[in-house]
Design a protein around this nucleic acid. Sequence first.
DNA 1: GACGTAAACGGACTTTACCCCGCTTATATT
DNA 2: AATATAAGCGGGGTAAAGTCCGTTTACGTC
Lengths: 220, 220
Amino acid sequence: MTEPLVSIGAPRAERADAARNRQHLLATARAMLADPGAAALTMDALAERAGLGKGTVFRRFGSRAGIFQALLDDDEHAFQEQVLSGPPPLGPGAPPLDRLIAYGQARIDFLLRNREIARHALDGSQPIPAGSSSPLSRLHIRSLLAQLDLGPADLDVLALQLTAALDGPLLLYLSTEALDPPAPAPAPGPGPGPGHPAPLDRVSRGWQDLITRIATPNPS
Amino acid sequence: MTEPLVSIGAPRAERADAARNRQHLLATARAMLADPGAAALTMDALAERAGLGKGTVFRRFGSRAGIFQALLDDDEHAFQEQVLSGPPPLGPGAPPLDRLIAYGQARIDFLLRNREIARHALDGSQPIPAGSSSPLSRLHIRSLLAQLDLGPADLDVLALQLTAALDGPLLLYLSTEALDPPAPAPAPGPGPGPGHPAPLDRVSRGWQDLITRIATPNPS
DNA sequence: GACGTAAACGGACTTTACCCCGCTTATATT
DNA sequence: AATATAAGCGGGGTAAAGTCCGTTTACGTC
């Protein structure tokens, strides 16, 4: 009874060798992502290349998608740093509307840079799971919305919808190929239009427009 | 040279036995979905229960996800019927704003009823593929937006974002369990709130609110 | 420093998605 | 009706995901 101080919630820290192996596996996975490519990143191959047993890989990550989730989570830490304590307008200090726009654009950029990993992190039999990025994204958006003095609104739902509007296009609907080339002028469509901005720019501008429309104080 | 009339684009109609087998497989899949459940719907089991070869199943649907996509596509036809020629406000005849709201709510309902199928239809190494629902959803939303006299806006992108705001919560972020029970009062959060509407209602109201905000004519 | 325990490890085993290719059959043509 | 041809069919084969359990190892306790 000398040390019951630690709350029951903490199941105990991860063992040192386990932590070391997790790091080593992540590093190996990243290397394989570069060389043989994501498609060839199999559990067996990863285990062998890391010099560990397959059981270990599964114990650490649970599933193939889990590896990509862990990689994404890892990458996300730097991003979160910027959001929580970086310079404005992404970090604190700017008005909430500006921060919201900046956040969306930064996240679009982040997802675009990591789109291959993000796609493979989807599971299909599972919502995007706890450890991963999304809850934080949702919470951050919710918190900024709360500072925004909208009228009566269900902020939880609105934040969910905006999170989806941010992630969905890149995760669900835009094919990877649609983003890679700078739009090779598919066909002379109706209306000449002002050139062909890269899809990233269009989505990014679209976010700004969406938020601006939503945050326009309703004319009551 | 007597019949080169048919354009090259039509690769030729599906053979009669193939069409019959497709229907039979879909029916069998639906039956299995009800009895052994989606998890036990394996390719082998489906083939055996349908009395066909495994190769046939793959030829017809391409992959496991393809089966669920085909099922969803099938269900979607009735839904599309309502949208294209059903009674207003879902069908034609109502003002575009009302139709847009009604469409979103109908689609939320549709996705909620078919959420298990829809989840399994996700692929992860592929955007939602051609045959499936999404392009039509996107196009319909885009068309209604176009009638809505917003200011200058990138309607393609906006439609994409709204489609994601509609599908995303149910496909990516909300766990299935979060939707099944009528919210057992998780914890006494801040603010008593007006009871606990079912999550479906919240998402549905949220859509209405989102669209209303977006469509509010900007006060220029 | 020895000991007990719970966590971690490894790799054989099982299951399942997906491929392949020789055989069968529908359909168009004459 | 006979034939040619391309589509469809079947089911055995491969590889990769995920499970299990006997063995090993880190860490807290005395």
